[in-house]
């Protein structure tokens, strides 16, 4: 555990909680892609199956349970509790175009051809693109609530901090996992455009809106 890893995890946790609080406080999930949230629930479920088989640390187990719990709570709020506010017409990204290729890639490129390992690899690849329906939705409507941009910023920051964590681990522990690193770099790149808009608009007090 290093400082980048810890702050990365906390940033991830902050993102998840910001999103839950936004929906809960406003009683609305307008502007939120339910499809991205379903993908994240699948990501956590397939990656954290090892909760049942391997104990790593109390920290590790607690965070996994919290991430999974929050992911399902978010999906529940979008598709059940506040379904009337869900903007399904704008959430039109075709997720099968992500899930099918990602599944194929996980079967082809993995560390070990075993059930658990392929599910883990699938979750790593899927996480790297799971935010696309959300970014697609924003590009379609041309705007995002400020609180939604804070959520996205925390999520992107978590990925960027994980890259620093991997650099650290490579130098000080000789540890690296190429699958996680490549997928993590791809994921971080997807946020670059958003980071730019966040810094130039949202941090200056403006709402995030895209030119028509």
């Amino acid at each position: 555990m290093n400082i980048f890893r810890l702050t990365g995890d906390l940033s991830h946790l902050a993102a998840i909680i910001i999103l839950l609080l936004k929906i809960w406080k406003s009683r609305s999930c307008a502007g939120i892609s339910g499809k991205s949230q379903i993908l994240f629930a699948i990501v956590f479920t397939t990656r954290y199956l090892d909760l049942l088989s391997t104990f790593i640390s109390l920290y590790n187990s607690c965070m996994k349970v919290i991430y999974i719990g929050c992911a399902y709570a978010t999906v529940y709020m979008i598709y059940m509790k506040f379904r009337a506010t869900y903007d399904g017409n704008h959430d039109s990204f075709r997720v099968e175009f992500l899930v099918v290729p990602v599944g194929g890639l996980a079967v082809l490129i993995n560390h070990d051809f075993s059930f658990m390992e392929i599910l883990w690899t699938f979750s790593i690849y899927l996480e790297s693109v799971a935010i696309l329906p959300q970014l697609f939705m924003i590009s379609k409507t041309g705007e995002a609530e400020t609180i939604t941009t804070h959520y996205l910023f925390c999520l992107g920051l978590y990925r960027a901090l994980y890259i620093f964590n991997w650099v650290w681990r490579f130098y000080f522990e000789g540890f690296f996992d190429l699958i996680a690193i490549v997928a993590g770099v791809v994921q971080t790149i997807l946020y670059c455009d958003f980071f730019y808009l966040y810094v130039t608009k949202v941090l200056k007090g403006k709402k995030l809106s895209l030119p028509a």
Partner: peptide, 10 residues
């Protein structure tokens, strides 16, 4: 063998 390491990252 990296993959045999415990997956301690979240």
């Amino acid at each position: 063998h990296q993959e045999s390491k415990e997956k301690d990252e979240l």
